[in-house]
């Protein structure tokens, strides 16, 4: 796909190995989408309220929506709550439902049925992405961004609808699962984006995930390579600084020279590691690659997310067409 089309989808999934900055990229995409005039819903699942934390707002209750920044709404989705909500739609008698929710066998069932929570979570996200506003008939959101859990677990989420569809040859579940599969595999509506850092473990995992997505025929979006170091320093210069230490008398100068050499070596080392693994990603993953620079900040907070959003603004060109859908 063309990165410029990213903001014309209905659903963007942001996936990747734990600790590579998925939540950061998801938040930055949301901020940039909102800047382009889209009404964005940003969903997360693992109960840690990472998006609220990064966007510097109090975490909303599970299942409810809060506006974290103009045009950016966040929601924490929980499979169990989504199942309860779904049953509430199917069976609108509150008293009966309460009896079900109180029973032990229900809780056991929810814990035991493989993939049920994942299926319900994706169902809820589908409902938000495709849901229609009552009055105008327009979509509730212009774009839903799903900050997915770490690789293995997010594959479980993505696989569940097809598994559920195949497990039932007909009936309600088959039909509903089929609708989820259609959304998840439709390149016009959905893009699965990957986030990686250009290092051994995340790169291996990303290549593995990319292959699985391809096997599942899921539409891929952009591969974000995060925290890239880009300053190389010549070994000869580093060595000259290091050997100059011995010629200095003043302690302050000795420390400063040694430290300048050591930090240059550190930066050059990571620059080379990143370049090597970035090349491997480019070679093995057929997705457009957007590189995000490493940010040298004392702490990573909203200002840094905004900086990355501004970077995406330059890297992901606008389409020229109006991106907001009617």
């Amino acid at each position: 796909m063309n990165p410029a089309d990213l903001f014309r989808r209905r659903l963007l999934v942001v996936a990747g190995k734990g600790g590579v900055g998925k939540t950061t990229v998801a938040c930055a995409l949301a901020l940039e989408g909102a800047r382009r005039g889209l009404r964005i819903l940003l969903c997360e699942v693992d109960g840690l309220a990472g998006t609220a934390h990064l966007l510097h707002v109090p975490p909303p209750d599970v299942g409810s929506v809060a506006e974290a920044s103009p045009g950016v709404f966040i929601m924490r989705v929980d499979g169990r709550a989504a199942l309860a909500e779904y049953l509430g739609m199917v069976v609108p008698v509150r008293r009966l439902l309460d009896a079900v929710f109180r029973s032990r066998i229900y809780h056991y069932f929810v814990a035991a049925a493989p993939g049920l929570k994942e299926l319900m979570t994706i169902g809820k996200i589908w409902y938000e992405a495709e849901g229609v506003q009552d009055a105008s008939g327009g979509h509730k959101w212009d774009l839903v961004i799903f900050d997915a859990p770490a690789t293995g677990h997010s594959l479980q989420y993505l696989r569940m609808p097809a598994a559920a569809r195949d497990a039932f040859s007909a009936g309600l579940v088959h039909r509903e699962a089929q609708r989820l599969v259609e959304l998840l595999t439709d390149p016009a509506r959905t893009a699965i984006n990957l986030v990686a850092t250009a290092e051994e473990l995340p790169v291996n995992e990303t290549i593995g995930m990319y292959r699985q997505l391809r096997d599942l025929r899921m539409p891929t979006g952009v591969l974000f390579v995060n925290r890239v170091h880009t300053t190389d320093f010549a070994d000869a210069d580093i060595e000259r600084l290091r050997s100059a230490v011995a010629r200095r008398r003043e302690e302050r100068e000795r420390v400063a020279l040694a430290e300048m050499a050591a930090r240059a070596r550190e930066e050059a080392g990571w620059t080379r590691v990143n370049a090597r693994y970035r090349a491997r990603l480019a070679e093995q993953v057929e997705m457009p690659l957007v590189q995000i620079p490493f940010l040298f900040s004392e702490e990573f907070s909203l200002a840094e997310v905004r900086e990355i959003a501004a970077h995406l603004r330059r890297e992901v060109p606008a389409t020229g067409r109006r991106e907001r859908r009617a």
Binding site: A99, V100, Y106, A113, P114, V173
Partner: peptide
């Protein structure tokens, strides 16, 4: 009706399961 509900739940998640 609760029994019926469970059957519905079963239907929503899979009798075969």
């Amino acid at each position: 009706t609760v029994g019926a509900l469970f059957r519905r739940l079963e239907d929503a998640t899979g009798l075969s399961a």
